[in-house]
Amino acid sequence: MDTVNLAELIKSFNYLGLIFKISAFIFSVGYLIYGIVFLQQQIKMERNALIYEHLLNDPAATTKPGRSVLFSLSLLQLTLGLFLLFTSLVLL
């Protein structure tokens, strides 16, 4: 009896859905990693490159330059990655 139930269960299992869920999870993790690397590089580049713009505006500046628009965009990218991960784990 149990063997028959198991066979039916295996037959009725939605393999396409599972494959979709695994692919979605891998994509989301990849996107999230890209978002983290992007944010890291963006902060590094801001420190190295934008200091010149800061000094051009104020040659005697001793403060660090403020965050650029790109910082907000990369945070948004990271949030998108987290949302995709949540969707792939919970909704699919």
Binding site: G17, F20, A24, F27, S28, Y31, Q77, L80, G81, F83, L84, T87, S88, L91, L92
Partner: peptide
């Protein structure tokens, strides 16, 4: 939900 995920990941 899968359709939503596809569209969302495309926009991402």
């Amino acid at each position: 939900n899968q359709e939503l995920f596809l569209i969302l990941s495309w926009y991402a």
